[in-house]
Design a protein around this nucleic acid. Structure first.
Lengths: 230, 230
DNA sequence: TTCGGTCAAGTGGTACGACCAATCTGCCTG
DNA sequence: CAGGCAGATTGGTCGTACCACTTGACCGAA
């Protein structure tokens, strides 16, 4: 029965400290904090490193250690590693992404503030004005990013942010390898517009359906390399 | 432009090593590995600690450091901390949970293997036979756990596992405080049975709807303390 | 032979102390 | 007042020593 490698007395003490201090607050210097907690600087730094990795602490040499809002970079790194080590498949990750995006579409339609929804429209306009495949990719990325942040849902954006970069890189890599799928602008715009219109109409169910349709098309294109129709 | 606190040359070297060695493999001893990578044991341990926190490494004193399948404990810890530090709300976390569970329901209905689905049925039967509120809770927990694992989707179970414990604790705590919501057995069973039947029928859409209904009821009960009906 | 304990080597965990590198502060200079 | 320079502060790395736990080999008794 091994002890939890991530939760012990020292970690709990630090967790409590983080809870007390607010977001953005600075922790005492390591040397001082170590003495106060009755532990060596080595052991303290070990736990601080963990919390930094989780994205709840930010350390800057010469400055100090600060409490920050939960950041997704650590999770993103872990997912990337797990993906490349074959502990996770692109398909399973994508499945999670689809689920989150549908939820985001529904919440954005229900309670998204107009300004944030306008950003979604802006991304769609950029997509229509895109000149290169890279431009389309960027607009596509911005569209989904704007949709997620329109929900104002911190957990949703946290998870989605962690996955977005990983999937984006993995998909582009696979697409380059297959040489197909040339990112037709009209197709891309057509795939995103219904969702945006559902947001404007504040129609939660329509937004959910549009999201499902969007990813269904994406999935079909991705898994069926052939371009012709019977 | 601060350097990424989670990805540097040393971390990348370790990532590569983890990719090469398979799951379950043992890494070289820290002293040896540090020398081979031309770095002190301190710096090496710093990065190993990160990877252990992310759940891709497991270290056992006296034994060694091993590559393991991505484990959710670190993420769970981070979510728990973010929740108690008010960087994340229960509602937003629950929203993610709902999205994942619906996706799981659909995938389990589509491709879940019969044995795994039988485990879902077993949990439902346990719920019907439950004698205490705790028994109901346990069966409830097992039901959703079985559903998730029936998908065979690693990413889905990873995220869901990380959230389950956090939400379970948070909800029970809130429920205890409110003193309402006495966990009626008939209600619980009725809330879960349609989903199980959709799985048996391999009806993906029905499973998705049943999941939505389940959590809608859950949400209503949770946010509306009053028990009477108009 | 088989079981049990003992012991030594190996491995991760912690502790100090020293120094390096980036940052911040405040004083000084122009 | 503006700019820069120097010292103090703070996180990052290093090396060494020692502790705690695991493992496996060895030995002796049943």
């Amino acid at each position: 029965m091994a002890a939890d490698p991530v939760s012990d007395a020292l970690s709990d003490a630090l967790s409590g400290l983080i809870r007390e201090l607010g977001e953005g607050a600075r922790l005492p210097p390591e040397r001082e904090l170590a003495e106060r907690l009755g532990v060596s600087r080595t052991a303290l730094r070990d736990r601080l490193r963990l919390l930094e990795g989780f994205g709840v602490l930010s350390r800057r040499q010469g400055s100090g250690t600060y409490v920050q809002r939960l950041a997704p970079h650590g999770l993103e790194f872990a997912l990337d590693l797990a993906l490349s080590a074959s502990h996770l498949s692109i398909e399973s990750l994508h499945s999670v992404r689809v689920a989150l995006e549908r939820q985001a579409a529904r919440e954005a339609a229900r309670k998204g503030d107009p300004v944030a929804i306008a950003h979604v429209g802006k991304a769609l306009a950029d997509m229509e004005a895109a000149a290169t495949a890279d431009d389309i990719d960027r607009a596509d990325f911005a569209f989904h990013q704007a949709l997620l942040h329109a929900t104002g849902n911190a957990a949703l954006t946290f998870f989605a942010d962690a996955m977005t970069g990983v999937l984006f890189r993995a998909v582009r890599q696979r697409r380059d390898r297959l040489k197909n799928h040339p990112r037709d602008k009209e197709v891309s715009v057509a795939a995103h517009r219904p969702l945006y219109e559902a947001l404007l109409a504040r129609d939660e169910d329509a937004a959910g359906r549009a999201s499902d349709d969007h990813f269904r098309a994406w999935h079909d294109l991705f898994t069926e390399p052939r371009m012709e129709r019977p």
